[in-house]
Design a protein around this nucleic acid. Structure first.
Lengths: 109, 109
DNA sequence: AAACTATTTGGCTATATTGCCAATTACATA
DNA sequence: TATGTAATTGGCAATATAGCCAAATAGTTT
């Protein structure tokens, strides 16, 4: 089956969502938000990067539709909008475990 | 909870796996391999890119531990090593559907 | 209104990714 | 051995991403 331009567009949309998850800091943010609402300054303290950096990561996740924000007073609170994204982690762990096994096998040879 | 260097390393490893999925062509490849083994030339015909480009995408997926290869004669056959990766798609579709709803809501305002 | 705080945005540099072409490698067959 | 085919690798230019600083924005408090 050949990849036509409609399929291509669909894969591009999906890739955009996955790309938003493809960064260690953003994975941490998603993990942290799974425990509950967090404001930008809380996340900045945990991550230890410039607040502008954290804000931009949050903006990437928001653009992708993974988180949503809620401004209350001076602070902006972020929430996980699509908790199913957490299922990623389970499979990613499986992949990593399989990789470790693979390395062991190669070393034994 | 502060992000220490051990956590950081863990998130980096996970991000590497997700990053390997974060490209439209590689998503297509994973989708296609979920139906069964494919050789590089088959994928090249479907994708319509230079074979070196396809080969490099496959190498990214292989490095991440998502696919495995099997050389038989002149051809190299690729297989999906971790089928759970397909679960990504369901959630990604959910995100995309939610995004469409969101756009409708905003337009209505 | 002035000063302060939380966050976002713009701009910049450094680094990573992509995709093509050309060259190389590996295997098959005449 | 010479020729051909499938795939990988190296190299390059174009583009995208990341993270910091500085500046702008939005809301709060004095």
């Amino acid at each position: 089956m050949k990849l036509d331009s409609r399929d291509k567009q669909n894969y591009e949309e999906r890739a955009k969502v996955i790309k938003a998850m493809a960064h260690p800091t953003r994975l941490f943010i998603v993990d942290e938000l799974s425990k509950g609402e967090r404001c930008v300054c809380e996340l900045r303290d945990m991550i230890g990067a410039d607040i502008s950096t954290v804000s931009k990561h949050l903006s990437v996740l928001k653009q992708a539709g993974i988180v949503e924000d809620d401004k209350r007073g001076l602070q902006v609170w972020y929430n996980l909008k699509v908790p199913c994204i957490l299922k990623f982690f389970g499979c990613v762990e499986d992949v990593l475990r399989a990789n470790v096994q693979q390395v062991r096998k190669v070393v034994r040879k």
